[in-house]
């Protein structure tokens, strides 16, 4: 059993938990994920590692309630446990294995969308901890859905740019608008963009960065079962190759990923009925890509 030490509702439908998992905490790196299973009858749910404490042996996860399993998970409290908690899975972010001196010469920008801010966080933290500054753009539908702002501000200071779709906080517009503004109007030059968020958002970031000529890495979140390369549920078309996100990724060259196919595949287990329900329940927090909402 893997004990939950902290459970917080940090924004509308978004939850943060610290979980005791010493084996995972001792070996994980930014970019990797875990799979959790609540109980005997639960699903295996993949979640990115948002933060880790090697000494305490804990892992921080942040998740949004989107369906039956995540709804159930949101009800867990500090003191409860996950029956299973496996990881770290997937490959660490490219930066972890890169030559530090080379990396220091690069100008990196992150574009985070909604709950995608969570997986961006450990990467930003890692870079600053290694003395590398980077820019971070965080976008969300509205003010209530901005997460980890204080934590990121403490690390990235003025290099953090926040935007909301409806203009309810800081500025109005999407992450792509901010990126365009920084490059076109504020003279910023980037060698690499790392975009993490809903598929539809990553798709549009990639269209933009292709235009701007910025190599872009995205973190994919297809449906998964085992997370060890055994089932192929997580397969993606990347360039002319089929990749398994759980072992070859989850990070890929965004300019090669077939997002349209990935968006279709993510719908496999969502019935017409379920999708309608989802839109209803999620209301304003609906993060697109459900296949029923025209990707808004």
């Amino acid at each position: 059993m893997y004990k939950i030490l902290k459970a917080e509702n940090i924004a509308d439908k978004i939850y943060l938990m610290d979980v005791e998992a010493p084996r995972v905490a001792s070996h994980c790196e930014p970019g990797q994920f875990v799979i959790v299973k609540m109980d005997e009858k639960g699903e295996r749910i993949p979640l990115t590692i948002c933060d880790y404490d090697r000494e305490k042996g804990t892992i921080t996860i942040v998740f949004q309630t989107v369906g039956a399993s995540t709804e159930k998970m949101a009800k867990l409290k500090a003191g409860d446990s996950f029956q299973d908690f496996v990881g770290p899975l997937g490959r660490p972010s490219e930066m972890v294995e890169e030559d530090l001196e080379e990396l220091k010469k690069k100008k990196i920008v992150f574009v985070a969308g909604g709950v995608g801010t969570a997986p961006v966080f450990p990467q930003v933290k890692w870079l600053y901890a290694h003395g590398i500054e980077c820019d971070v753009i965080v976008g969300a539908k509205n003010k209530d859905l901005i997460i980890l702002e204080d934590e990121l501000r403490a690390i990235a200071g003025d290099n953090l740019y926040i935007t909301t779709d409806d203009g309810s906080y800081v500025r109005k517009g999407m992450g792509t608008d901010v990126l365009k503004d920084l490059v076109n109007n504020q003279g910023k030059k980037y060698d690499r963009c790392i975009a993490i968020g809903p598929l539809i958002m990553m798709k549009f970031v990639c269209l933009l960065t292709k235009e701007l000529g910025i190599p872009t890495i995205v973190s994919m979140n297809p449906i998964m079962v085992d997370g060890t390369g055994m089932c192929g549920a997580c397969r993606l078309q990347v360039g002319d190759e089929i990749k398994f996100a759980c072992v070859d990724g989850p990070e890929f060259d965004g300019h090669l990923v077939d997002f349209d196919q990935a968006m279709k595949r993510q719908q496999t287990y969502k019935t017409e009925e379920g999708r309608a329900m989802l839109k209803l329940q999620e209301g304003d927090t609906h993060h697109g890509g459900c296949g029923n909402c025209g990707n808004d």
Binding site: V225, M230, C231, G232, A233, Q237, I242, Q267, T268
Partner: peptide, 26 residues
């Protein structure tokens, strides 16, 4: 030997195409 093979034919990444491993694991 758990890594499933696919054929590489058009349409193989369609939604209801499963490896036997995925189907049986579920």
């Amino acid at each position: 030997a758990g890594l499933p093979r696919f054929m590489g034919i058009p349409g193989e990444n369609a939604n209801e195409v499963f490896s036997a491993n995925e189907y049986l694991t579920r």
